[in-house]
Amino acid sequence: MLWRILLAGILGGVCYLDRTAAFQLMLHRPLVAATLMGAVFGNFQAGAQVGIVLELIYLVHLPVGASLPPDDTGAAIFAGTAAAIVAEGRLLDAGSFTALILLSVAFAELGKGADATVRKINGRIARITRNSLERGDLKAVEHGLLAGLTLFGIAGVLLSLAFSGAGVAVSTYLLPQFSPQLQLDFNALHPVLPLVGAASVFTCGRTERTAYLFFLAMAVAFGATVLFGWVV
């Protein structure tokens, strides 16, 4: 288990770097991060199950200027890890699924706080860079960037270690505390979560001409899914 958490830390660190500091190739998206964590802990299908829903929920909050969105990468690292362990090679049951998505919100907010802290420390690095430049040290720019990048990277690895560690703990100790009957009760919330994600996309994509198209597409997909389900 320990080597898996270490691997999660390294891969999660790469996802985190992609989030702000480097490239932005979307390797930090919850679908990618959760599936990756699922694979590390032996069940990528279960990781993807939570990733698919987490992918959309936080889209509405754009990373504009200095305004930081919740850390959906961190939420996905936690939920993907826990999902793979709970599912034990099968698909994730609805109760655990719901519990994990809802618990992941704590990690999204914790990660956001950590992100703000890194950016504050970077302020100090930027100030040192500026002062060194004033003294005529041209190397300072490259050193400053390297320092900032390293800080983002270290923070990413530490967060990934902590969040996937928390995923292991929650799935091993917390979730088994509840009997299957109680988990079934938790199911009541299960259908709501994808709807929150859909609302998030709808809010981003909403213009006057798209409002009715959204519900039209929903009706068509709904009809097709139900018919397909009834026929098969």
Partner: peptide
């Protein structure tokens, strides 16, 4: 200080 930018068009306008 940036007048029109992302925060304005993507969050405040809607």
């Amino acid at each position: 200080c940036r007048l029109i930018h992302g925060q304005v068009v993507e969050t405040w306008v809607p």
